[in-house]
Nucleic acid binder design. Structure first.
Lengths: 205, 205
DNA sequence: CAAAATAGCGTTCAAATGAACGCCATTCAA
DNA sequence: TTGAATGGCGTTCATTTGAACGCTATTTTG
């Protein structure tokens, strides 16, 4: 729908607006794309406005409407399954992102990639009332005894389990009697501690 | 800390910025407060900036930084208990507000006061894995058979139950065998349909 | 009491800004 | 093939905008 150029300009406007809280002026767009005429920018702005991407704010500059900018401010990446051998989660492309203020979950410093979400598979945590399809919101921090964590066991995929210790050894315990404790053979790596849960009604069935 | 006048002006800037996505110009503030000199506004802006309330955005207008504005955009009111006889929920003061994009829950048009949240009390919906302390996110729309709704029964307080029909009559059914069906004597009023759930880990215990 | 902060008036100024008009080249669908 | 859409150039213009300087009066605070 959008042309290459229009996409570029829209991206620039969005980034600028997110960073500065104010959309760029037509001259700033002009400089950015090294256009020698400012009227070229006006043309692009008009095109973007016709396509409903931007609008004139308070009769002044052209930019994204407030909700569109802000919808991306508190973005939390959502991962389906975390493949093994990728501890650098920042590198991964999330399945989707959700817009939630992490303050709800009592997270103090919502630094980037400190908070993320994992789509829950299966019913191993059902006794903790965590359902298949739920989004587990996790914070990257040191786990404490009894915390529910997203754990990478022996470099296999990530699972959500409760962390307990038996005879000094860490054990991952499901919240479902039909599942047995997981005792890591080699390594247990916590990728985050459960701080909250988001369920979309209807998405679980 | 802020003077009366500064408070007024800051409020105006905040409201303007939320509504328009752009802060007001000094002239617009001038008109609003019927000041005959524009330099008066400059003085107030400088004072507000010194007190850390506003800052210059992109070297242009003075306004609130993006995060401060946007933290209040997708605000969902959270109610503890909805008292009886107050169908006009808009009139009520929420216990708190949370900042979540309703799009997560598949709500198309997040009009004001279309979406709200109810703090769950008790374990009557525990078999649906809704715990005491959870926030039930609700949308004001017509309920369908089997929906979980926030219902006002016979003008008493609001409860969260599943709506079913027995012999043509609406019945509220708990998701817990220890609770009996509620058959409304006089009136059953749905205040919203469950569209999602938010749980703060640690808040339930 | 004196000094600082607050609140305001009136005016001027340079720079920034959106908008417009005319013109040209390319691409692409009808 | 023809017209619309896209992308771009160059220029001009009226308006808006932040900023500054000087002045006065009241209120607050050390």
């Amino acid at each position: 729908m959008l042309t290459e150029r229009q996409e570029q300009i829209l991206d620039f406007i969005r980034d600028f607006q997110r960073g500065n809280g104010v959309p760029p002026s037509s001259r700033e767009i002009q400089r950015k794309f090294r256009l020698s005429s400012q009227s070229t920018v006006i043309g692009h702005l008009r095109a973007l406005a016709n396509k409903g991407q931007i609008e004139q704010l308070a009769g002044r500059t052209w930019g994204l409407k407030a909700s569109a900018v802000q919808a991306h401010l508190f973005e939390i990446p959502v991962f389906g399954t975390i493949p093994a051998g990728l501890p650098a989660m920042q590198e991964q492309v999330p399945d989707e992102t959700i817009s939630v203020n992490p303050a709800i979950f009592g997270v103090r410093r919502p630094g980037p990639s400190q908070v993320w979400a994992l789509r829950v598979h299966g019913d191993s945590m059902i006794d903790a009332h965590i359902m298949d399809g739920d989004l587990a919101v996790l914070e990257r921090r040191e786990p404490r005894e009894g915390d529910i964590i997203a754990a990478l066991v022996d470099e296999t995929t990530t699972t959500l389990k409760r962390l307990v210790h038996l005879r000094g050894r860490p054990v991952l315990r499901a919240a479902n009697r039909r599942y047995r404790d997981i005792v890591p053979e080699r390594r247990l790596e916590s990728q985050g501690v459960l701080v909250g849960l988001i369920r979309r009604e209807g998405a679980n069935r």
